[in-house]
Design a protein around this nucleic acid. Sequence first.
RNA 1: GGUGGAGUGGCCGAGAGGCGAGGCAGCGGCCUGCAAAGCCGUAUACGUGGGUUCGAAUCCCAUCUCCACCUCCA
Length: 474
Amino acid sequence: MTLRLYDTATRDERDFAPLTPGRVGIYLCGPTVQGSPHVGHLRAAVAFDVLQRWLERSGYQVTLVRNVTDIDDKTLVKAAEAGDDWWAWALRHEREFQAAYAAVGVKPPAAEPRATGHIPEIVALIARLVENGHAYAHEGSVYFDVRSFAEYGALTRQALDALSPATDSPSEDKRDPHDFALWKARKDDEPTTASWDSPWGPGRPGWHIECSAMSQRYLGDEFDIHGGGLDLRFPHHENEQAQSRAAGYGFARLWMHSAWVTQSGAKMSKSLGNGLLVSEVLAAHEPAALRLALAAVHYRSMLEYTPSTLDEASAQWARFQGFVARASEKVGAPSLEDVAAAALPDAFVEAMDDDLAVSRALAVIHETVRAGNAALTAGDDAAVAAALMSARAMLGVLGLDPAAPEWAAEKAGASDAAMSALDFLVQADIAARAAARAAKDWGTADAIRDRLAGAGIVIADAADGARWSLASEG
RNA sequence: GGUGGAGUGGCCGAGAGGCGAGGCAGCGGCCUGCAAAGCCGUAUACGUGGGUUCGAAUCCCAUCUCCACCUCCA
């Protein structure tokens, strides 16, 4: 079985074959930290986190680099408007992004390079482009000469003459309106902290060059996969590829792009309101439910976000969690090592190998959980154990194993000590209720249950006694 | 204008010539003192008009609608 991935550049799926056997290098365009993260940002991160997990599960050693664009026009403008230093503004939002990624279980990347930390690499790359005739300096700025590079437009099939002009700098400074800035000369109204020395004078990097420079530093002249959101295809990725290839490097061998989160069919953006900021969504829903909602739709399909999206995901998450909890109680919880080594159902593997068809993979998980629940009812412990192992292994690939460390202690964020204290108190109520039920005193039994429910504690009766759990958030 | 994507049942979403993925919600049942959870069963479908075919949501032609990138964007 071979993993097949869709390549944006060729617009078809093909067998994935890494540059170096057994190893995969991925460069992912991370956030421009000029604002707070919203759900759409997380979708891209989750999509590539699932890719990383699937590659790792398939036996590859993955090096995923996700950059941070910590300086750009907008960061400078927004920080200035807020009366803040741009670097403090950027770092504050970078921390918000990191917290959001961690909340939904996105693995930390192998490297998280910042543009401002790689000025020497950027300058060297620009100098190389100037030397070989693909870039030119003008009044302290340097531009990429798109007409000098025949391949320009290859990634996204753009014909230069049909494009609107690039507006990242005044067009009168450029040989061709589509030329874009590699180095931007310092402007008088910009803070001196936003400028670095270069052979062309003080200034700062253009938007696209950082990714060319940083991917090369961490992943080499050529690497396996370059990822990012759909909106980055043009001009960002097109320009990255042009720079790197014009400089003589192989650059990305495969391009993957994740689609939007939409509302009523339209791309989510800040102008639609901030109800979709990660911080607000997580105030009302469990992080795992958000991850599930974002991962459930194929990464190249638009994900329609409706008011019930998170409720549905929460219901599914509760189903997974419930089965894992009940099954583990019955047959014991396998170790993480055993789960990681467990066999995966063929249908699941086929789905994941088919360009990460998570929706289909999820269907297999649901079928496994249903069989496991049935086995639980039937008292077939062997079948329960098999379903538990299989379900956790599959959920783990999606980063959603309820018993994995990132989620195991999630419930209300309560500490072990607090939970054990609460258990002590609730057990007294459960005992009292059991006595009332034995006496068929339903009024008392229901009153106890209602009182606990009022405190956010859910009681569920079973043949071998009652269990309690904290009500799900949201 | 250039480039690309999408229209599937109440909702979210897979699929891509022939046994109606899966989930959520609904309905009926089992279980339960009642619930919850779980299990079993179940209705409603492929934008529109033509065509090809024994057979089309899936192929072809036409058409309508929506979305995105080309300006910062996951």
